[in-house]
Structure formats: structure tokens, C-alpha cells
């Protein structure tokens, strides 16, 4: 069996037994899945006149300019589309937080438990070890994002009219989830590897996640305020930039991930 697969198996066996880590990964996914439905159901009920405020109207106007058929749609349904699109963006926090949590726990945890030295004494190559750990972090985080998005679509299908679903599950939404999602997961774990080489505690290492969360939050807020509407070509351009960043970050991570460096320089 390849060493990468052995590491992958080991990481997942360990992850399955780490309830707190699993919970910390699942919690944002559940919140981002349920919160938009709570908003589209509860806000109009609790505030029948106030839900269609200036921000919503500005966004509806933007949406209408980009997709003229929305102008003829019931404002409440446009509100649904607005909220569901916003939360599609928030779904990007799931791979960021998930990959970062697993990567930092996996590396800092090995440092804390002093398990790296016997592991590095085996014939495994450091690139295999890094690949194993990276896949172990990126795959579950990405899969969790996709599965949560699957439930999101399913719930939308059940709870909202079909036209809402068509305007949310569009090239922008799909690109965010299936293209940007894995790329931010890789960026997050790459940063996790780099910062883990210095951190003594996984939670300290996870603070680097702010670097990735802030741009997503900025996009979320700016779009919510109606400053702009995320278009497919911008998403693809972002994907290209992310890909370049991923390559750079992974190269830095691989340079740090050398036997001697790990044993003598990682504190």
C-alpha cells in the first residue's frame, strides 16, 4: 500500500475518534445550512413590512439588472434568492475552517504527542507524508462542503419554488462550491502547514484562518450592501489567482516539511 494511503488511513482513523474536532468542523456546516432557511422563513413572519429594506431592494435591483427575469418575480422570492446566494458564499468558510482545523491539529498534534520522530524514521518520503496529511485535510473539508451544499439544494427544492433554485444553483454558485471550495481548502491547509511549524497549540495555528475568512466576509458584506454582484467571470479569475497562491503556499510548506527541519527547527 502506498505510504500516502497509509497516512490518509491513519489520519482519518484518528479524526473519526476526535469528537471535538469533528464537531468543530460540522458546526459551521450545520449553521450555514440552516441559517438561510431560518432567515427566509422567519424574517418575513416576524417583520412583515420591514424585511424588504433598502439593502434588499438595492440587491434586487442589481440582480434584476443582471438577470432581467427577476424583475417580474415576486419580491419575496427575490429575497429568497438574495439570501440563498449570500449563503452560498458563506459555504466557502466550511472548507477553510475544516481544512485548517484538520491540518493544524494533525501537525501540531503530532508535535505535541511527539509522534513525528518515529514516523520520520520510517522509509516514508516527506513529500508522501505531506501529501497524506494534505489530502486527509482537504478531502473531508471539501466533501463536507459539497455534501452540505447537496442538502442545501435539496432543502431549497423542498421549501422554495423551483425558480429560486434555478437562480441559486447557477454557474456562479456551482463555481464557488466546486471550484473555489477545493482551492480555498488547499490554501487553508497550506497555510496551516506553514503556521503549524511554529505553533505549539492547534488553536494558535488556526488563528491564521482569519487571513482567509476576512476576504470572504468582506465579499459577503459588500454584496449584502448591494455594492456589487458576484459574476461568473470574477469567480473564475479568483480561481486562477487562488490556484497560483495554492502552488506558492504548497511549495513553501514542502520546503518547511523536511525531516531535519521538522526535528530540529519546529518548536
Amino acid at each position: 500500500m502506498s505510504a500516502v494511503l497509509v497516512i490518509l488511513q491513519k489520519e482519518w482513523a484518528d479524526l473519526r475518534r476526535h469528537r471535538l474536532l469533528m464537531l468543530s468542523m460540522m458546526a459551521p456546516a450545520v449553521v450555514f445550512l440552516l441559517l438561510p432557511f431560518a432567515l427566509v422563513i422567519l424574517v418575513p413572519l416576524l417583520d412583515p413590512s420591514g424585511w424588504n429594506d433598502r439593502n434588499v431592494q438595492r440587491m434586487a435591483e442589481l440582480l434584476g439588472r443582471a438577470e432581467p427575469d427577476l424583475r417580474r418575480m415576486d419580491p419575496l422570492l427575490v429575497f429568497h434568492i438574495y439570501i440563498f446566494r449570500q449563503f452560498t458564499l458563506m459555504f466557502l468558510l466550511i472548507p477553510i475552517l475544516g481544512a485548517l482545523s484538520i491540518a493544524t491539529y494533525s501537525i501540531v498534534g503530532e508535535k505535541q504527542n511527539r509522534t513525528l520522530e518515529p514516523l520520520l524514521a520510517t522509509p516514508i518520503r516527506t513529500t508522501e507524508l505531506l501529501w497524506g496529511k494534505s489530502l486527509a485535510a482537504a478531502l473531508p473539508a471539501t466533501l463536507l462542503t459539497w455534501i452540505t451544499f447537496g442538502f442545501y439544494v435539496l432543502l431549497m427544492r423542498v421549501l422554495s419554488p423551483a425558480e429560486v433554485l434555478a437562480h441559486v444553483v447557477n454557474p456562479v454558485g456551482l463555481s464557488l462550491i466546486f471550484l473555489i471550495g477545493p482551492l480555498v481548502a488547499i490554501l487553508s491547509l497550506g497555510l496551516g502547514v506553514i503556521v503549524s511549524s511554529r505553533a505549539k497549540d492547534p488553536r494558535t495555528a488556526q488563528q491564521i484562518g482569519v487571513l482567509l475568512i476576512l476576504p470572504i466576509m468582506a465579499l459577503f458584506i459588500m454584496q449584502m450592501r448591494g455594492f456589487f454582484l458576484l459574476r461568473a467571470r470574477w469567480v473564475w479569475l479568483g480561481a486562477a489567482v487562488l490556484l497560483a497562491l495554492d502552488v506558492i503556499i504548497l511549495k513553501i510548506g514542502a520546503r518547511l516539511f523536511q525531516r531535519e527541519t521538522i526535528l530540529t527547527r519546529w518548536t
Binding site: 491513519k10 482513523a13 484518528d14 475518534r17 476526535h18 511527539r114 509522534t115 520522530e117 514516523l119 524514521a121
Partner: peptide, 14 residues
Amino acid sequence: VGIVTEAPGLYERL
């Protein structure tokens, strides 16, 4: 070579 390091370095959840 087989090595026993100063700390056992075992995966405690496994």
C-alpha cells in the same frame, strides 16, 4: 533500523 525514541510517540486515539 528500528528506533525507540525518548518519548513513545504513539497515536493515543488509535
